[in-house]
Amino acid sequence: MTSTATTGTVGHEKLTMAQALNRALRESMAEDDSVVVFGEDVGALGGVFRITDGLTAEFGDTRCFDTPLAESGIVGMAVGMAMNGMRPVVEMQFDAFAYPAFEQITSHVAKMRNRTRSKVSLPMVIRIPYAGGIGGVEHHCDSSEAYYAHTPGLHVVTPANAADAHRLLRAAIASPDPVVFMEPKKLYWTKEEVDLGAELPGIGRAMVRREGTDATLIAYGPSVPVALEAAEVAAQEGRSLQVVDLRSIVPFDDETVCAAVRSTGRAVVVAEAPGFASVASEIVARVTERCFHSLAAPVRRAVGFDIPFPSPKLEHVQLPGVDRVLDAVDDLQWDLS
């Protein structure tokens, strides 16, 4: 880590998503004294995934600090600090370890603006490393996004590449509203060529990652690379698949998603979470309601099964891979068109 923070870096460089997130935190902290980072092991250690690496050394232990090991305490204290002029960015160590904070998140983080008729806003970010694919043990691999997406008052954002991780975290910290920032931990170490100075759409906008004409794959977070790989394989088999990356689950970008689906007339939603009552279900409902007359087949899902997340040796059974995605694509009633 270099010791100086740079803002709006221009030029291409190779970064992992973890480094891009770290850069976003450093830039936001350098720009705004009210940005404070805290949680478990985020200080000297730099976080178990090193996202907060070097922040305490650079900004001091009043700006980036370790807390007692209690997630409700972390989020509850962040609520109070946000009420009193700060912009807390808190880290939940793993998806399932955020559950002790559930009451604070759903009853206070999400509702304070509404409760006070906008007299109190809570500009805070709750960072949650989530989802599987890293061979994690129990409680380390949940896809918990639906809990937060179902709660009015929260923004729920999830990047799928390093550039978006940087852009969206910067936007999340600057947001006047609380953002649940879900980081696909299996993508933390993927190195990419990125231009952190590039203009990218903010929170609430989806992006088309790959153009295609036969069907649309709608994915977010850890499932975007799976969808892109599936599209690559399909192309070799003569089928042209478009890939949409949601980036933001709430607010949901109906405009981009529906325009994409209307252009192809077929869609598959790809997501790791158990499919029942999931974000994927919501996407199917929205697309069906809005694009029914453009659809040549029912919208399908390539998602996780309705089982607790398996142990490492069995996680490949649960995670939707290229085959599950292409099987769903195969089911899109091609014979009828």
């Binding site: 305490g73 204290m77 609520v79 600090m81 206070h108």
Partner: peptide, 13 residues
Amino acid sequence: TQLLHAVGVAHAA
């Protein structure tokens, strides 16, 4: 739940 908010307000101050 509000006791933690009080801690946050106090700590920020």
